[in-house]
Write a protein that binds this DNA or RNA. Structure first.
Lengths: 202, 202
DNA sequence: ACGGCCCGATCAATCGATCGATAGACCAGA
DNA sequence: TCTGGTCTATCGATCGATTGATCGGGCCGT
């Protein structure tokens, strides 16, 4: 009596979002039809439109909230932390952990930017730029204070971000490497790349 | 009299391939219609099929030949080179230079793998695996001979490849950084990541 | 009897792909 | 030099299927 239908257990709106993330990540935005989406969310394709104005807006919402939450988390993580090395450690750990915990969502954010309409794209890219500026500033700080040694900080930042983004492409939760070990290892790699001293020189 | 039509200058088959690479890279495989493709190649959508059996096979051909040429070039580059540090330098330089010279083609190879049919995918992934094995073997060699110091070589290899792949996402030929400077910088980064000594300790 | 959910049916548009046909280049035999 | 045949390249028209999206109406708890 509590449940009227053996639907999906979760509320429909959540099912739609989850299904969209999964399908957009695996088949791409243009490769996913609304009928695929409806089937995966256990709804009719008509009912789908009670939970989204448009397929493109659904994508934009997913990307926008996902990126905003990453930016918020990063701001919280860096709050009050001044040491550039510590800041870099935290940025890498947060970024890698997120990408490992939600590889699907991240893949959508990273790969489907140009499926957005110009208006949506402006919003999304704006948030992404704010986030990446945290990395730029951190690297610049480290250089100015002398703890980082790297020529071409702009290129190094891009290399760092690409390296960390890649995690979402191959990480599998069942693998031999846990999320926190992964984050540690990537923090080490990042320190090496910018020329910062290693964690435990022991 | 020499030219019967003011078509595209280049032979039609080449126009089709170039247009496909450009469109698949910017709008994605599923985001590109054969009418878009026909317009970009200055042909009718019917004539298109004189130069490709199928849209998917066109994609598969592009990816297969592109990857095969990268693998061949890498084998040539490594031929007779035993020192793991030198091998890593060459792998990184080749990879980065290619990604900078043909970012479109590379983006297609890196992003459209799951638009392929299972049969095509097997071929493509097979070549890619052979190529990546060159990286694995190089890293293992460096570890065994003691010139590399890195825990988790498998993860480090993935980080290296993701970092180098990223170049195709942002490199622009008109930028401040030339291709060979870029390759040098990435080789430095790679050495740092695996713990190899820097190039010119001066 | 009203409002939140939900659906079958269907829309116009576009999809990838195929059709028969045309125009020109090239060659063989008369 | 003409003629007929073959081959390649190209096209407009169109195929059935699928696309994203809409509409009117039904169910059900309140």
């Amino acid at each position: 009596m509590a449940v009227t239908k053996p639907a999906g257990g979760r509320p429909a709106r959540e099912r739609v979002h989850r299904a969209a993330v999964r399908l957009f990540a695996t088949k791409g935005f243009h490769g996913t039809g609304i009928r695929d989406l409806a089937k995966a969310a256990d709804l009719s394709s008509a009912s789908l439109y009670h939970y989204m104005p448009t397929k493109e807006r659904l994508l934009a919402d997913i990307m926008r909230t996902s990126l905003q939450s990453l930016l918020d988390a990063a701001l919280g993580e860096l709050d009050g932390v001044d040491d550039p090395v510590e800041r870099l450690d935290r940025l890498v750990a947060l970024h890698v952990t997120r990408h490992a915990r939600e590889p699907m969502r991240t893949r959508v954010v990273d790969n489907e930017v140009d499926a957005l309409t110009p208006a949506s794209r402006r919003d999304v890219v704006g948030i992404r730029d704010s986030y990446e500026k945290l990395w730029s500033d951190t690297i610049d700080d480290g250089l100015h204070s002398g703890v980082f040694t790297t020529t071409r900080p702009a290129t190094t930042r891009l290399a760092l971000l690409d390296m960390c983004n890649g995690v979402a492409r191959w990480f599998s939760p069942g693998g031999e490497l846990g999320r926190s070990d992964l984050a540690d290892h990537y923090a080490d790699l990042a320190r090496r790349m910018v020329g910062a001293p290693p964690r435990q020189p022991r």
